[in-house]
Design a protein around this nucleic acid. Sequence first.
DNA 1: ACCTGAACACCGTTCAAGT
DNA 2: ACCTGAACACCGTTCAAGT
Lengths: 196, 196
Amino acid sequence: MTESNNQPYHHGDLRRVLIEAALGMLQEDKGLQFTLREIARRAGVSHAAPYRHFSDKVALLVDVAEVGFEKMGEQLTAAIQENLPIEEQLIAIGKAYIEFGISNPALYQLMFSADVKEKEDEPAAMATLNILITLLKRGQEEGAFKIRPIQGQAAACCAMVHGLTMLAINGLLVPEKFGENPIESALATLSEGISG
Amino acid sequence: MTESNNQPYHHGDLRRVLIEAALGMLQEDKGLQFTLREIARRAGVSHAAPYRHFSDKVALLVDVAEVGFEKMGEQLTAAIQENLPIEEQLIAIGKAYIEFGISNPALYQLMFSADVKEKEDEPAAMATLNILITLLKRGQEEGAFKIRPIQGQAAACCAMVHGLTMLAINGLLVPEKFGENPIESALATLSEGISG
DNA sequence: ACCTGAACACCGTTCAAGT
DNA sequence: ACCTGAACACCGTTCAAGT
């Protein structure tokens, strides 16, 4: 009797429930055409209820995307293995990034959608960028990487990894066009452009 | 009197007019949330008329995307300058690609959207890939490029260029993060991974 | 303070009916 | 053969009204 199992008139934490419902739908459906009304339906509230917690549909999406960035950040930091040579660390973090995108295609696309990018103060997005920059700096100091402007190398890494993720999500990385292991090959090419 | 200036009861070539209307809207609006009803409105027909020419809204979008690929193909072939050294040709074609995307953000995103990629028999998309592969082969034969599987190098080029275009369109290539010329820097890094 | 129901202006799609 | 108008089932959003 400590907790009532029939939902209370004023839902406990509807805000979080709505975000979780949206995350669940993004995992199921590949497309991101999920509706606010459907989210409310899943949360068991009327379609007007979300407007007490979010000013807008995109406001909800922005918060969902933020959770996505946090999850990605965790996955990337988990992929760091300090004992490996630095070139391999760079490859490993790139693979982890792409893996996250391929495993959560709808969420990833939402995170980088035009609707969302208009607010986003880059919470964990900035964090992952800092991981990369730290790695590049250390690589240059150790003499493993070419001495180049760090920000330029970072741009190359982000673009390559983002491009591979997007192409993979849209099913364009087919073997007939790009061979058996396009991701490995592309990351190797990037690595050769940075190392040496 | 050779042509009647009041539109005929049965519109001349509504199919093409609808595609042109859609292209016009893509040039104006940045987002790709344009509606079929608005397209019909612009074409001066009822919102049901498009269904005599396209089975679906996405069917229209697929045809619009195809025109986009043709336009991009023209722009890329126009950017080829045979007299330049081959490394610079690679850079030049990459820049032309990104330039097209930045100049036509909504159209570019439509061309690579999940909705559209489901039909598309890759018309001009394949053509531009062949331009790239020819270039890479010649570079390897001339000894300017590293001897590597062509398809892998092609994957690296496509991913880099696609990633830069998408990041640029979404306004994420800001100087505070990636320096003054992220596109130049990233293409230079790619080039260093391929040449040598 | 939080939620519901009805309402409004919009979609995509269909279908009988017009020319 | 091609187009229109009304209709259907859906959205996002708002707002009076309920608890």
